[in-house]
Design a protein around this nucleic acid. Structure first.
Lengths: 354, 354
DNA sequence: TTGAAAGCGCTAACAT
DNA sequence: ATGTTAGCGCTTTCAA
């Protein structure tokens, strides 16, 4: 849509005359109770008589008082915010992680705040700095690879840090995820065990995506042990899409017709590849076997069930949030937990030959 | 993945001994410059000699000082946060909106903070209260339907409020979106003009989703003008998926075989319906025409291009963010703008018969 | 160009 | 059960 086509209509609004926001004092005055007691009522703290409590709540409600957390946080040096930093939202995988985080935090006083890095370490550094400057109670961020500056900010932040998605590497504090190397290895073995020998790989450009790279490394490593080499490989820029998967698959099969298996770095492009094969009468898995990665829900909708591997995204979010919640509730808990989930192969209909 | 299978490994960490976070005073001491001047340097404010500036920056960097925005915000009563409240992240549509918002805010001092309501007005009220208590510079939230309490909080917040996605209703302040009634009407006319008469509708349960409801209302209204009634309709609970689209379509076509068109409330279930038809040898659009809604990118990956209507999600995010940014930069700007985008029908291959 | 004092709106800690 | 006092770490304002 071009800007030109927007229909822009100014509308007259009698907004309330941008009043000064209400403070505790206003509620105190309105209810005839000291600021301190008002504060107690509003936070359910300490002993307050029912009569006073009701007076205060009534006054607060009638005035429409909204507490100022900025002031509260400064005074109490407690900020019930959890910073969550992910590389992308358009990815299908991170929304699931965020959902898992929300589920757990909803049962606590903590509130998640999201930042997005677009897979850029510099941007990550900026977002991190910005978020740390709000003095959150904890940080959850994707991956184990960060700039030196980011690592040192995290280390000296004094708050629980949970790195998620990936366990292959040295965490700063706690880590929840899967081993992508192992995921790659296991998939390689499974593929070979099912009789495939001419294997192609399609993935996103590696420097951006460490987890895809590690899967690829584990994959080729396990193949090498069987004396097998990847016959062809192709890498794409930017986001994943069905269309890219389709096009890349067409190109690769044309270029290297002897391939009998294609391993993709995610379900979206894998599904595109599957559509290409099915639409072009390529026998799957008879002629070519296929596998993706992530265990995405949308795979359930296709005629053929694509082989994949569940990456436990939601569970990862839940566990990460649980760690933060526990450590926030009890500062005496030790740092440095590692939770490695076990991804499981879902063979679907595109891997095991009848 | 069950909890039982997690491999949990405690790891020893020599975290820095949870030091007191650094303050301006520390930088002041380290650089031999007053706190005030340090503050000036760190905010690029006022006149500071180059020599002092460098001393301060060096000290801040060496110490690893991260400013405390809580204190800064309290002192200046300025908070560079924009609260963004959406119903869902798993939806494909909201990540696009958020991306649009981020794109625009990235060029400003403003920072987006996201909250999710799961389509629940009560949850919206909670999230809104929580966010307003951080005194953000502006609010962007989806839809025009809110609880009375939410409306009154928004009205008295004294900050720019932009309601997005939908323009059919009375906005609190500014609004950016499309008219879903009009979208439904236009699609109805286009369908009828292309010769279809026996039309079915498949959508999400309405009480949750006002925009889907409005499209449906506009749709039936325009059909009625042509003397046509929707022949069959079905509504589902919960999230959208290819699989649901597939199953609902199968059921509806079995139940009402005379249908020659299916209008879906979104692209995901529409694509599922398309897959059902194609996989079962149903001639599209010869026997049944199909259309979805949203202009989703992933439609490009299918063999047949599904008819849809671009909802301008990203553009909506950009415009909303622009309004907040402008009004924040210049408080004198008037409130109450309405920006209505024009959705355009993308007929693809599933609507117009050859 | 730099510094000193006051205070943002709330809560911790200590009265009463 | 309620109130008083003294900050939290910064920025505003005014002075030098």
């Amino acid at each position: 849509m071009d800007n030109d086509e927007h229909k822009v209509v100014p509308i007259k609004k009698n907004m309330e005359p941008a009043q000064r926001p209400l403070t505790l004092k206003d509620v105190s005055l309105a209810s005839g109770v000291s600021e301190m007691t008002v504060s107690r009522v509003l936070r359910n703290r300490g002993d307050v008589s029912d009569a006073t409590r009701e007076k205060v709540l009534k006054a607060a409600k009638e005035l429409g008082y909204v507490p100022n957390k900025i002031a509260g946080a400064l005074a109490s040096s407690r900020v019930n915010l959890v910073a969550v930093i992910v590389p992308s939202l358009s990815n299908m995988v991170f929304p699931d992680v965020l959902t898992g985080i929300q589920e757990v935090l909803d049962g606590t006083p903590l509130q998640a705040v999201f930042g997005v890095t677009n897979y850029s370490p510099e941007k990550e550094e900026e977002v991190l700095f910005e978020m740390l400057s709000w003095r959150p109670s904890g940080i959850i961020l994707a991956g184990l690879e960060h700039s030196d500056a980011s690592r040192s900010m995290l280390r000296s932040s004094g708050i629980p840090v949970v790195e998620i998605m990936d366990t292959d590497g040295e965490p700063i504090d706690a880590v929840v995820g899967i081993s992508h190397r192992r995921a790659g290895r296991e998939m390689a073995r499974f593929i070979v065990r099912n009789g495939y020998r001419n294997i192609g790989f399609l993935g996103s450009k590696m420097p951006m995506d460490h987890r895809a790279r590690k899967r690829f490394e584990g994959f080729t490593e396990a193949l090498a042990k069987e004396g097998i080499e990847v016959q062809d490989q192709d890498f794409y820029d930017g986001g994943s899409s069905l269309l890219k998967g389709r096009e890349m698959t067409a190109r690769m099969l044309a270029r290297t017709p002897e391939l009998d298996f294609l391993y993709y770095s995610n379900d979206m492009i894998a599904a595109g590849g599957m559509l290409h094969c099915l639409d072009n009468g390529i026998d799957v898995p008879g002629q070519v076997g296929l596998a993706g990665f992530n265990g995405s829900e949308f795979l359930a909708g296709f005629a053929r069930r694509l082989a994949t591997m569940d990456s436990g995204r939601r569970e990862i979010g839940r566990e990460a949030a649980r760690i933060i919640a526990e450590r926030t509730a009890d500062a005496a808990l030790p740092p440095g937990q590692k939770i490695e989930l076990s991804p499981r192969i879902e063979p679907g209909d595109t891997l095991v030959r009848k």
